[in-house]
């Protein structure tokens, strides 16, 4: 039995009268790639924001690698190993791609880092190469295409040595060719021991990448299964396509 790296217990969140998460409990084991699915407005991004500390929950608990992180600020959660990317990665205007990657490693950027002499950074060079960013390394990070920004945000997240990488819609607005490469890249990252939780709409991407999926609908967990089982799950089909209507009912 693999060790659990992330577990949530009865997470609740409402915005005014609108209940977004209604007691969500899930767990992710070390080494897994888990897809978090659900129709628009089902609460996926809110759940990710709560897990990473960017949004406080109304109730429930979050545990990351044996630490109760409920209510901790984002930087404290990141330091415990849960690092996330954003759905619309906003990148700096006055920093190059390489500079963003260099700044990604917090441990090297302390005040002591100001005293260290310049040295060739093999890890930055490797990530630039792995994530197809070598050619654009001296461009301002904000000038990258949407897909390149997603790649840079994942590469930057890896610089902080995450145990659990949470990706918010990594393929949204990404060219299909880049999408295939992203699947390979994330599998490589996972093979190096990084657990991945990915919020995604693209079913093809999920099928290629994930070993397990959890599905949210209207703030509740409705499925926890292998990707191939999703289409056979009536609750998932209903969440995405609506309830089947009996023949003749509409004309009544």
């Amino acid at each position: 039995m693999l060790e659990t790296i992330l577990s949530t217990e009865s997470i609740r969140k409402s915005f005014g009268a609108h209940c977004v998460l209604d007691g969500v409990s899930l767990s992710v084991r070390k080494g897994e790639i888990v897809g978090l699915l659900g129709p628009n407005g089902s609460g996926k991004s809110t759940l990710l924001n709560i897990l990473s500390g960017f949004t406080p929950s109304d109730g429930g608990a979050v545990n990351v690698d044996g630490h109760d992180v409920t209510g901790l600020p984002p930087h404290a959660i990141a330091r415990l190993g849960l690092v996330r990317t954003f759905q619309l990665p906003s990148m700096p205007h006055r920093m190059t791609v390489r500079e963003v990657l260099q700044a990604g490693c917090r441990r090297e950027a302390g005040l002591g880092g100001a005293l260290r002499r310049w040295r060739y950074d093999a890890e930055v060079a490797r990530l630039l190469d792995q994530f197809l960013l070598t050619r654009v390394q001296d461009q301002p990070a904000s000038a990258l295409s949407g897909g390149q920004k997603k790649l840079l945000s994942i590469a930057t997240a890896l610089r902080s040595r995450p145990k659990l990488l949470c990706l918010d819609e990594p393929t949204a607005g990404v060219h299909p060719n880049l999408r295939s490469r992203m699947v390979e890249l994330l599998k490589e990252v996972n093979a190096q021991g990084v657990t991945i939780l990915v919020v995604e709409h693209d079913m093809e991407f999920i099928r290629e990448l994930c070993g397990r999926c959890v599905v949210l609908d209207r703030g509740a967990l409705i499925a926890d299964c292998a990707p191939r089982e999703l289409v056979e799950n009536p609750r998932v089909v209903e969440a995405y396509l609506g309830k089947a209507v009996e023949k003749g009912k509409l004309t009544a």
């Binding site: 600020p73 006055r94 920093m95 880092g113």
Partner: peptide, 23 residues
């Protein structure tokens, strides 16, 4: 130095800096 890059990240994208573990 790297510290300067961290300051620039704070200036330009505080949310990104926070998600990477910067206090």
């Amino acid at each position: 130095g790297r510290y300067g890059l961290a300051l620039k990240l704070l200036r330009e994208e505080p949310q990104l800096a926070s998600s990477l573990g910067y206090d």
